[in-house]
């Protein structure tokens, strides 16, 4: 892991995210809501973004959701048997990880809710509460406790939890679906990035900490002799925990590490359902097949050496 941490220069990526539905019967009409535009943040700049829809949308509009993430809404009113949504983005990412060794004791972060400014507190409060896919679970609190002994600094405790999930849980795309509950993931110790993100959020919230779900992409890097990073062939998900004084710190429980330069952020919410990359309602098909392909590659830029 040493080599990733040492990498601190900004990196520019080209991300291609293609979603293809193949329907068993002709779809008469379709309405979709997409979270596919990478978010502009202090550490992330979106240089270009384009979505191509096939068949062409009869109407579409862009806007933003409650959390400030970009959304694209579109409708197709011509009969079709297949839908392809091809999103392509050029994104520049800067390193943004604070000093993990520093920071307040985690108990202080729980008690500190009242010390934040009104706007902060207000924004953070919603990420401390249970949400439909991340209910409050006593067994999650129990699992988390090991990483949170009395007095431990919050960032270090969160990183420890991140690593434990990576070690204790098996990455297994066959084990779960998009609607699998945290309780089952915890019981079976298997899942994918979405499950591990929900699990870690449940752990942090059960201790009274604020945590949010991040949707995005991870670098698809296959150095010789190393296995690919899990989750790189599809869209990825990880977690941000709030730390008084430092703000939101990103952790990737699927890969057991802090999320920094190898990650492109699409957006965040309380859980998966707030930032589902593509959700829709179709009229007229009995079943559908879904194929998702993601590629994320560094591109040479004028600024980089």
């Amino acid at each position: 892991m040493g080599c990733e941490v040492s990498m601190t220069d900004p990196v520019t990526y080209r991300v291609v995210h293609e979603t293809r539905y193949t329907y068993s019967d002709t779809v008469a009409s379709s309405r979709q809501l997409a979270h596919l535009r990478p978010r502009t943040t202090q550490w992330q700049t979106v240089h270009a973004h384009h979505v191509n829809i096939d068949p062409a949308a009869s109407e579409q509009s862009e806007g933003s959701d409650y959390f400030g993430n970009g959304v694209l809404r579109f409708a197709i009113d011509t009969p079709h048997d297949e839908l392809t949504v091809h999103a392509e983005s050029i994104v520049e990412v800067h390193s943004h990880v604070p000093e993990i060794g520093a920071g307040p004791a985690w108990e202080r972060a729980v008690a500190a809710t009242g010390e934040w400014g009104p706007d902060d507190r207000f924004d953070i409060a919603q990420f401390q509460l249970a949400s439909p896919m991340v209910p409050s679970l006593p067994e999650a609190a129990e699992y988390a406790r090991v990483s949170f002994p009395a007095g431990r600094a919050l960032p270090a405790a969160m990183l420890d939890l991140t690593r434990r999930i990576h070690v204790d849980f098996v990455y297994d795309p066959k084990a779960t679906t998009v609607t699998t509950e945290v309780r089952e993931v915890l019981a079976h110790r298997r899942g994918v990035c979405q499950d591990f993100a929900h699990l870690m959020i449940a752990c942090l919230r059960s201790l009274g900490l604020a945590a949010r779900y991040v949707s995005g992409y991870i670098l698809n890097r296959v150095p010789s002799g190393k296995s690919r990073l899990a989750g790189a062939d599809a869209s990825h998900a990880w977690v941000e925990g709030h730390c008084p004084g430092s703000g939101w710190i990103a952790f990737d429980p699927t890969n057991g590490k802090v999320a920094d330069l190898e990650f492109v952020t699409l957006g965040w919410g309380r859980e998966f359902s707030d930032v589902t990359p593509l959700r829709g309602v179709v009229l007229g098909s009995a079943t559908q097949k879904l194929a998702v392909a993601v590629s994320m590659q560094p591109v040479a830029t004028k600024n980089s050496s």
Partner: peptide, 13 residues
């Protein structure tokens, strides 16, 4: 016709 067509929700990752 449309009265019979059931709407189905879909989720893409």
């Amino acid at each position: 016709n449309h009265a019979h067509t059931a709407a189905r929700a879909t989720l893409g990752l």
